[in-house]
Every structure is written in C-alpha cells, then in structure tokens.
Design a protein around this nucleic acid. Structure first.
Lengths: 221, 221, 221, 221
DNA sequence: CATGAATGAGAGTTCATTCAT
DNA sequence: GATGAATGAACTCTCATTCAT
C-alpha cells in the first residue's frame, strides 16, 4: 500500500514472545536465525518452511530455535518487523509540505512500489500468510483500515475543497484506490505479470489523479 | 474480476481425474460430496478441511471419497467449476450492443460484485488456495491475464478514438483497474471491511470512468 | 526343473474354489479373466496386480471377478494350472525306452528350458509368489521334493550299477543338480543374464553327466 | 554364492539415506533399531514387517524410526550390510596359495554354506526381497554377475591348462555351478529340505569337481 | 450372471516441540 | 546457551470384498 503520509516510527509488528538475548553470542544467533528464515521463507513459502530447515540454514541446532522464538509465526513476525524497518528508511525522502498533490502521490507510489519490488518474494509470502493465519490476517486488516481511513479523510477534504469528484464515496474510493496499487504491486512483482515496468508508477499515479478528478493534473489530449 | 464481455461457454476449470460415475447412485454420491465440500471449505478453509470431514458431511465412508476425487485439490477444483458455471448464468443479462460504456461497465461490475458477494466465503477460500497451490495460482494467473488483455485492448481502442486519457499505458491501466475491482470485492466481502454497500458499485464504476477520463460520464461539480 | 520322466496327466495345481461356470457365457468370461490375469501378472507381478485391473483388462465389472475366483491367489493358481497344461504338451515327444541316458537328459533339459523360456515372465512371477505366499511355497516344495526323490532314486540306481560316482550322496546330488538347472533357467530367462543361449542345453547336460561321472559320455580331451 | 577368492573389503551395500547419528545415544538407538529389524524380519518376513513393530521391538517411538531410516527398504539394506560385514570375517581363514583346488573349493563352499546357514532366516527374507524389490534385485544381479565372471575366468584358465572339460561353455558353466550351490543352500536351510547335513559340503564340492572333470580328484570307483 | 458403487481397516509418515546432557 | 535425539498425534489413501439393482 502506498502512503501519502510522513515516515512514522517503525515496528507496528511487535516481535518475539521470547525475551531478547543479552549475551553477544545470543544476539548473533538470533540474527542469523532471522537471516536464515528469510532465505527459507523466500525459497519455500511459509507453509513448507520447516523449523529444522531454518535452524540448519543458520547452522544451529533445531532446539536452539526455541531459545529465541516461540514458533514459525513468531520468527516470521520478527522478520517482517525487520523488513518494515528497512522499508521505513526511504532512499528518497518524501517531498515537503508545499509540494503539489500529484508529486507527493507519485513519490509515495514510487517508494511503495520500489520497496515492494525489492522484497517481492517476501511480500508474496506475506500475502500467503495473511490468507492462512488468522492473526496475521487481522493484523493486516487493521493496518489497511488505518491507512484507508487516512486516505478517505484526504479524499473527503479534497471533495470539500472542490478538488475531487464529489460523487465518489470517500471510503469506498479509498479502499478501491489503495487496493489498486497494492494489487498492482502484487501482480507485477510477485506474479510477474508482464507489463512495462517504467510505466507502472506514472500510470498508477495518473489513474489515481484521474479517478479523483483532481484538477490541474495535466491530461494531454 | 468484472468483465465487460459477453457470457462465455463455461468450465475452464475442468475437474476430476477420476472418471465420472455411470450409475444414478454414483452421480448422486458425487454431487453430495461436492455439496459437502462446499460446506466444509466454507467452514474450515482449504488447509484445515479434512477429507474425512467432507465424506462424513456427505454421509459416505471416507474411502468413497476416492471413488470420485483424487484428493482435496481435485474436489476443490470440481467445486470451483460448479461455482463458475453458476456465475455464468447471470440473473440480469448483460446489456446489448448500443448501450453506453458507463452502463455496460456498471452492469458488469454489478454482476461481478454480486456473484462474488454471494459466494464470498468460497471466494475467500479460493484466494487462499491461489496463494498456496501452484497449479491454482497458475490457473488464476492465466485467467487474469486473458481478462486483462481484453481490457487493455478496449482501453487502447478508447484512446485511439480520443475517448480515454492517452497518457495511460493500456496494459498497466488494465491490470490496475481490474485489480482494483477484484481487490475491493475481496476487502468488502471476505475481509468484511466496513463500507457502505450500496455505494460500492456506483463508486467503483465512477472511479473506472474517471480514471480513463472517458468523456460524457457526468461528473457533478 | 527338468524331468527325466514321462509325460503325466496334468493339473497337480487344482484350481478354483468356485464351481466352474455352466453357461457358455460364463465359460467365456472365466477364460477372459484368466487371459487378463496373465497379462496383468506379467506386467505388474503378483503383488502389484489389482483385482480391478484384471477385471478391467477382461472388460468385465470388478464384481464379476468374484463370480469365478475367490481371490488373487485363486486366479493365479488357475493360471498356473493352465500354463502347466500347456507345458505338458511337448512339441518334441520324449525319447523312448532304449535311448541312452545322455540323450534322454538332453531332451528333458531342452524341454524344460524351452518351456521356461517361453513363459519366462510368468515363471518369474511364480518365483515371486513362491517366496511370498505360504501355500504356494508349500506347493512348490512338495513338487520339488517329489521330483528330487525321483532323481535321487535314479542316481542311486546308477551308482549301484557302477554308472555313477559312488561318493556322492544321491539325495544331495539330486537336489543340487535339479536346483542347478532351475536356477540357471531363472538366471537366463528371468534375470536375463547375458549368456550364449545355444550353449545352455549342451553345457548343462554335460555338467550333469560329468557331475555324476556317468561313463561313456564323450569328453573330448 | 560360494567364492574361491580372497576376503574383500566390506560393505557393497551402502546404507541409510539419513545421516548417521552424532551422539552416543543416537548410535545406540540406531543399533537397537537394526537389531530389532533383524528380529522382526526373521519373524514376519519383509512384507509383513511393520515399521511400528520394529520401533516397538527397539523400545522407541514409531517416529524415531524415521530419524535413522527412510523406510523399510532402508533399514533392511542397513541390516544386510551388517550381515555382509559379519560374513566377511570368516572363522576359518581361506587356505593359502599352494592349496590344491579341491581343498580351496571345499573351504569356500563350507564357508559359504555355513554362513548362509547361520543367517538362514534372513537369507530367506533376502531371497524374498530380491524377488519383490527392483533395486534389491538389481543389486543382487550385479553381485552375482561379478562373482560368476570371476568363476568363468577361472574355468577358462583350467580349460586352457587342460585341467577342465573343454566342451563346457565357461560362462554357462559358471552360472550353473554358482547357482547350484546357492540354490542348494536355499533348499537346505530356508526350505529345510530334508537332506543329510554333513554330506552337503563334500557332495557339492565333488559335484563341482566332477562337473568340470578336474583331474586328480579321486573318484573312488 | 453382470454391474459398479460402497465399505473400512490399517500402516506409513511428518515435524513442531521438548528436554536431558 | 547449545545440542540433537525422542516423541506421538493425526491424517491420508488403498483396494479386496460385498451386495443391492
């Protein structure tokens, strides 16, 4: 999901039910387990990943896994938190206050799509997990709602200012447009649907602007 | 996925590796197994559904399941084929040739969303299965590509006729808009995101028309 | 096992626990089941042959199998009885009374090896079944003992006549020489050990004569 | 199969697809599973032996079986490798270079028949498995060919030296005589054919020598 | 006699989790 | 902290045999 908002403090996905290691060695083991998990999840998906494979990949005994994680979900959660942290350090900082909407939107879309692309395999696994695991599903739903509501409020504001098509239901539109981008990312980078890569960001941005009928976005006719 | 095209001949999902029953009794048993599968899949999802539960629900011995189906995937395939058949007998026949685009689109969206809604539970399971099972994933991808290409051609035609924003990449736009609707259906009916139901069809139709900048769709300002 | 004795009335393997069919149709069905069994056993061996495959091969319903046979062993028994009947109609009738031992032996070995070869696949299956099935094992053991005792008596007679090495234990020798030929047949025709086919009969006959030190068999020196 | 050759390095049957245990406890468990397998295979044969019985006999959980072995074939392979190792430590070392052929042959036959007898039950099971299992069959075939070729070369040499009947085809003779001994062992110790035990070795040795017409073996007349 | 669907017992196998060393 | 072996519950799938039509 793209976001038009500012960078936020990380880690909505709070990790590990196990306490963090204190010793240096422990920290290293935990880190190598997470790194191994990434490898294995990307290779096998969530369902087919076995704890013992993750441990083997990290070159530790199976039993050691449980020193740091409660189970498969737990380490996946930790991994996703880490990914999210990585994603929140954007290469290109978001444009400032005065920037026109179209530019902010484009920047936000680009940032989202690029980080999705960079972690495509894992995003696919996350998609899978969300369909399988109740708590992940719930978690994702919550994140999406929050995000959608923010966008809905933005749309409402634009409508009130006469800057957006007033016939649209703001909430439905927010769901639709948010879903549009995340779905496109999924299709392009996980399913690898054949589409011209460099057109994705401009087209999706344009679609969004058009859809809202935001004035002042140049439509070459 | 909504479609602007005409009703097509059914059953792309060809089922069962086992031969179809000959006797009347066999036909009935097979049908009751499929019905049972629907119940169980809706209740437990794909992963948690057990063959033995399906058989029990159909009041036959577990072994009898294998008289008709090779396994869980097989019966799910058969079930989906049946659903698809049901979906292809629309209550409201699609509008004829002369109808304006906006109306055709609205009808198509309405038909899609309604049948999605009617089978929401199962569509959720299908979504799950598509994320889990390679062959289902492939199957779905193929269907989506075909559908998207059709829409991309339509968009191209509109652009050539000066009826649609020419800056849009037709293929990316087709993916994005198609994904928008299917994603919205998923959010609304599977995840049960709280949104005003009666606004969905008009809003999504309007978004689509706006996004393409199709002229002549009234935008109240 | 080769035999030096005369042709005997067939069917030591008494077949079917089910009564023989009376109607013409029944006779035909039974026959086609046996023919089918031969095909399937040769293709799949005893263990992997399924009743339903035999029935299918015979183009009858599975249930019909049980009209004629009690089970897999039963039809195998019937099949072997039939094979044995076929084997007992030798193309070359055994030589008469006055024939020298070496010629009788050669004729007997040739007859045995040729019919073994003709039914090699099935003999392999029989070998398999004898190792698996208690009653077949017993049956085969009994046949072999009878045959061996006959040969042991013959050897004893030769020894008493000064025509055979008297240091040999007649019974052990009979077992050894009988086993030698049947084992060779198995190796040559079932395991398809690469050996010059046309040398088998003469060599094995010569070995036998040599082994007994029967005088007057020309040993080129 | 008897052999006239020297002791060879062990373990043609390399076992286990699972990695060997590291800990002391693991080594012990694996060993007790193999011991248990021997008991169960001897009692029930290969086909009727159940993994769960082997595990129970070894006093471990069924699942623990799979820590060490992939399946029934795998543990049988490991067991046979162990037997083979045992067999290769002969009580009576083979006679030296200068020994006459008849003595070498007798020693070799005795060694073979005694170790066959000592492991008679298992040899019977091996016989069964070889008829059932493709890979075992192939394995056994390969061993037999190697052994037979060695003997064929020996026979050829004797013939060239004027020490053996030149009319015999060396390869066929090697197959026949090798098969004779192994078959006799099977009949005597597995099928328990009633034959005077103490006569077996001398008779079979004599038969072999007679069969080849090796000179200087005293034939009392 | 033929049909073909229904039955159901039973073994194999996996792998997350525990725990003694 | 690390190790790696032990556990055992739970589900699938096969196919010989039966029997109502």
């Amino acid at each position: 999901m793209p976001t038009t908002s500012k960078t936020k403090p990380a880690a909505e996905l709070t990790s590990s039910a196990r306490e963090m290691p204190v010793s240096k060695r422990g920290v290293a083991t935990r880190a190598s387990l997470i790194a191994a998990a990434r490898t294995i999840f990307e290779r096998d998906g969530f369902l087919d990943a076995r704890i013992s494979d993750i441990a083997a990949e990290a070159s530790v005994a199976t039993g050691s896994f449980y020193t740091y994680f409660v189970g498969k979900e737990d380490i996946f959660l930790a991994l996703m938190a880490q990914i999210q942290d990585e994603m929140l350090h954007p290469e290109h900082p978001p444009p400032g206050e005065g920037t026109p909407l179209s530019e902010k939107l484009e920047a936000s879309n680009r940032a989202y799509l690029e980080s999705y692309r960079k972690n495509a395999k894992l995003m696919g696994v996350l998609e899978q997990v969300s369909m399988i695991n109740e708590s992940f599903r719930e978690h994702r739903r919550a994140r999406m709602f929050a995000f959608t509501e923010r966008n809905a409020r933005m749309i409402k504001r634009l409508q009130d200012d006469g800057q957006a098509d007033p016939t649209l239901d703001p909430l439905v539109a927010a769901f639709a447009l948010g879903g549009m981008v995340s779905r496109l990312a999924f299709q392009a980078f996980v399913l690898e649907a054949p589409m011209p890569f460099e057109k994705i960001v401009p087209t999706v941005t344009q679609l969004w602007l058009n859809a809202l009928q935001t004035p002042g976005h140049d439509v070459a006719r």
